[in-house]
Design a protein around this nucleic acid. Structure first.
Ligand SMILES: [Mn+2]
Ligand SMILES: [Mn+2]
Ligand SMILES: [Zn+2]
Ligand SMILES: [Zn+2]
Lengths: 142, 142
DNA sequence: ATTCAAATGCAACTAAGTTGCATTTGAATC
DNA sequence: GATTCAAATGCAACTTAGTTGCATTTGAAT
């Protein structure tokens, strides 16, 4: 008899969204899930050099993961998109982050994100971004 | 005798920062000050077609305005930099804004920006961004 | 008027992201 | 296991945003 599993496998997660389970999607989603921070297209390309994925395919894989809500996409202060696995992202949605403009690092802070203010009638909120920027300890002293 | 002026002229503002007062800097800063929203490089290029400024010069003019704190630079959700005059920006620094992902519009809300949480020792804060995104009334109903 | 660092214009370049199209493949059906 | 076909991939070409190097021009100080 099959073992009861509480966590869904990567391939199950992908299949559940209705798209094909392909090696590229598997490798990228697993990479995002293992990463401790949002990764850019070129971060991912570098991480997968061993068996490279075509540049364009990688963009399309990332698009599809975002479209199926398995990943999230955000633009950084240099204007580059960074992707994170939804599962990993949710672990960080209860506190705010500090982004170092020196080293690019992201730091978890012990503070809840602010709640949304009242919106004008008829407006529909889809996202709140609260981001702190500056220099981290080692970028100042180092 | 010279008339006492309460508001500094654009050329005075530029001169005060120690850089040369040039036509390009004048025109760009005045455009930013008149604009009701942050403008991208290409927005500005389009606005100044009558007597075009070289692409590279425009980038350098914008850099210099940002360096001398006469303008601010922020990246939008498409990864493109947008510039606003500091004077115009300060008029909006006491309340938060809603950005419509449909029409690209920016709406002033009647709510103060949240204050910064405690940072770890040795960290230095340089900017706080609190941004609400979603659809505005006319983008939903229209 | 002379002087020179700062600013400009132009050509060439990089990096990020997109599009079109021919080929391959996951997975559904037989 | 073989057949089928939309979905996914690979590759070439393209676009848009932004940068760099260098020769020429210019703001403003003297
Ligand atoms: Mn975190
Ligand atoms: Mn405002
Ligand atoms: Zn740092
Ligand atoms: Zn709108």
């Amino acid at each position: 008899m099959p073992t009861a599993k509480s966590t869904l496998s990567t391939s199950d997660l992908i299949r559940a969204t209705g798209v094909k389970v392909t090696p590229a999607r598997m490798r990228v989603l697993e990479l995002l899930n293992g990463a401790g921070r949002p990764l850019s297209h070129s971060d991912i390309e570098s991480a997968l050099v061993a068996r490279p994925i075509d540049r364009v395919t990688l963009y399309r894989v990332l698009d599809s993961l975002v479209a199926s809500a398995l990943a999230l996409k955000a633009v950084d202060t240099r204007g580059v998109y960074h992707y994170s696995a939804a599962a990993a992202h949710h672990r960080h949605s209860n506190h705010v982050h500090f982004h170092c403009t020196g080293c690019g690092g992201s730091f978890c802070l012990d503070a809840k994100p602010p709640s949304a203010p009242k919106l004008p009638r008829g407006f529909q909120l889809s996202a709140i971004a609260f981001e702190l920027r500056g220099k981290c300890k080692s970028c100042i002293s180092g």
